[in-house]
């Protein structure tokens, strides 16, 4: 299943490498950008959006650091490119797509749900199973307590007395 999903994005592109001339429509030239989607933003908006976008991108030469964070030359240049594109009015999606087209979705620090749902669903399943386990354990505890003849589990309601009891309980 994962493989099929993969086959619709990156892998297809890799597979088409063998027969590049077959594509009928004009192939995209990554060197020529489509026009920006918006008017150039106000100067004060450029930097926050730059940091936001660059934080989603992986610095290709670093380990685990984002383009926004890394002080490496490559990251600084990539961040500069993000800043340039933001200033020209490109949208966040356009800019992210721009980098994905060049570096594949490997450049995204967070895997997309569409292509990599397993990395999101599996921990969720784990948490769900865990919650079921907690619930069943607590219920089992309660049942065994109810089967006891007396109300040994009942604690004094009075807070003063309660505190004293607990103080003694190291």
């Amino acid at each position: 299943m994962i493989f099929e999903l993969c086959a619709t994005s990156y892998c297809v592109e890799a597979a088409s490498a063998g027969e590049p001339t077959a594509s009928a429509e004009a192939p995209v030239d990554l060197g020529a950008l489509p026009p920006p989607m918006f008017d150039p933003p106000a100067a004060s908006d450029v930097e926050p959006l730059t940091i936001k976008i660059a934080s989603r991108l992986r610095c290709p030469v670093c380990q685990g650091m984002s383009v926004s964070d890394s002080p490496s030359k490559t990251a600084v240049e990539m961040k500069g490119r993000v800043r340039e594109l933001v200033a020209q009015g490109y949208s966040e999606k356009q800019i992210v797509d721009y980098f994905v087209a060049r570096y594949t979705d490997w450049v995204l620090l967070e895997p997309t749900f569409a292509d990599h749902w397993a990395v999101w669903v599996v921990p969720g399943l784990g948490l769900g199973l865990g919650l079921a386990w907690v619930a069943s354990t607590v219920l089992a505890w309660r049942k065994s307590a109810e089967s006891l003849p007396s109300d040994v589990g009942e604690l004094p309601k009075d807070s003063y007395e309660e505190r004293l009891l607990r103080e003694l309980d190291p």
Binding site: C11, S55, R58, S66, W106, V107, E110, P111
Partner: peptide
């Protein structure tokens, strides 16, 4: 696993 079994490179980083 994605790389070893499916030959796909993917990053799981800070935002995740």
């Amino acid at each position: 696993v994605m790389e070893g079994w499916f030959e796909t490179r993917v990053t799981v980083g800070q935002p995740y």
